[in-house]
Design a protein around this nucleic acid. Structure first.
Lengths: 256, 256
DNA sequence: TGGGGGGCTTGATCTAGGTCAAACGCCGAT
DNA sequence: ATCGGCGTTTGACCTAGATCAAGCCCCCCA
């Protein structure tokens, strides 16, 4: 190793190391020993900054890496030829991107940064190799994939059975919970996405999202100032989320 | 090869063996060598018949196996406390069930047989062990999980952006394609599920499903006789599926 | 062989959310 | 500091699909 001039580089390496990353308990290294983590570190040679609105990958591109978000915020979406598109998820620090590409060896959706972000590139072939050698890593990786499936089932439930305000309440609670897990305020945060992107994710139009926000605010459940959200009443939101509103007629009939 | 007296036993073994299963090209053994397949066979000691309406597993049960469908037809669904439920998928021969359980080590949905079925029990811990030793198996298993994620994104797209008839067309085309892959007629088949189950999967009420079937029949795209479906015009269904109907006003305006 | 019941179809009506339109406000670029 | 434009809010109206209701069909079982 050369001298001096590499100070920068070794700092960069340390900075990249999983073992010193404050997301290690959320991210891929979860549950690994020091030694195992070092081996994982060795796979990850590339870390990049992705600017707001830049693509991390696009549908159709050959799959080679999965990506761990070190900082920032992404959305993934699927585009149909006819112009329809569906946001399939929002991802934040410590979460993995790119799992959709394994099956066909090409990405099946687009990943776009919603704010300036930083991403670790994990060469998938090498990750597979290491996870053949490190059982805890293998197990954890399988869990991550499985949880992604379960998460998607949750979204299907949301899209298939919930009303507009239930969906938005579920969305806010989910964000809040994920921010909390990262040590941020559970009650106050800035949305990184537009009303239209929220709507696409929730199967609603942006106007409906906006109206639901306004309604929550009138009800004192949250306060909204453009992208700034302050959650005032979590139990109230939970109630809305679970309020399987039966047809109104049932309420009318039951009212006697 | 043993002789005579083993004939019975080896027949039984052969019957269970992945290597002689006509689904091996669809199922987990895909791409394995003879030798590797034999090692996979050894994991799978249990094969059970599941009667129509019986549960293969239920949400909350501890996760231990993943299941390969040898024959038959299943649905998976998620139930909310408030009574809402969402069918998250229909599974047929050669497909795997139970991947939802890996993440939390407990199943997160229910799997119910929609007809008398036969299922191979694959102990997950042993599958992980083997896939640490057999790269092709590891790779294939990851692909299966990834494809499940991509499939779920497709359903999210369907639920989030498609109209009722587009959804049903997509559903029929998907079934047709999967039956074809299994050597059955792509044009004619019996639905194993009720209109209500289809509706739950597609985020529609059973009446809407029924009306859409009737409409497709009037349009000469299919013929329906209760559960018996005959697809008469696949391109026509594809057109409906992709017909991103813009608001009618746009059509009116464009008409000049 | 006839009765019962679940599943399906069809019609009439209602409504949540989509669509269209207008105006506002915030923010970044000049 | 001002301008322009995107993102958002809000209102008025419309429609796809839900809801409610009735009757039918088919299959299973006695």
């Amino acid at each position: 190793m050369p001298l001096r001039t590499d100070k920068e580089i070794s700092l960069a390496v340390i900075k990249t190391a999983c073992s010193s990353c404050n997301l290690r308990e959320l991210c891929l290294p979860f549950g690994l020993s020091e030694d195992e983590m070092t081996r994982l570190d060795k796979l990850i040679n590339v870390r990049k900054r992705i600017k707001r609105n830049e693509h991390l990958y696009q549908a159709g591109q050959p799959f080679e890496f999965i990506y761990a978000i070190r900082s920032g915020f992404f959305k993934t979406d699927v585009l149909l030829e006819d112009g329809r598109d569906q946001v399939t998820g929002f991802q934040m620090a410590g979460e993995l991107l790119g799992l959709d590409g394994i099956g066909t060896e090409a990405h099946s959706c687009n990943a776009v940064a919603l704010e300036d972000s930083e991403v670790c590139y994990i060469p998938f072939a090498r990750l597979e190799k290491l996870s053949r050698e490190v059982q805890t890593l293998q197990r954890h990786f399988h869990k991550v994939m499985s949880r992604e499936i379960v998460r998607d089932h949750g979204v299907m439930m949301l899209l298939g059975t919930m009303r507009a305000e239930e969906r938005l309440a579920a969305f806010l609670l989910n964000l809040s919970q994920r921010f909390t897990a990262r040590g941020f305020s559970h009650a106050e945060f800035n949305l990184r996405m537009t009303r239209e992107e929220i709507g696409s994710y929730l199967g609603l139009k942006l106007e409906t999202v906006s109206r639901a926000f306004s309604h929550f605010q009138e009800a004192g459940l949250i306060s909204v100032q453009q992208k700034h959200i302050h959650i005032l009443n979590i139990p109230g939101l939970k109630e809305i989320m679970n309020s399987h509103q039966p047809p109104l007629s049932a309420v009318r009939a039951g009212g006697a």
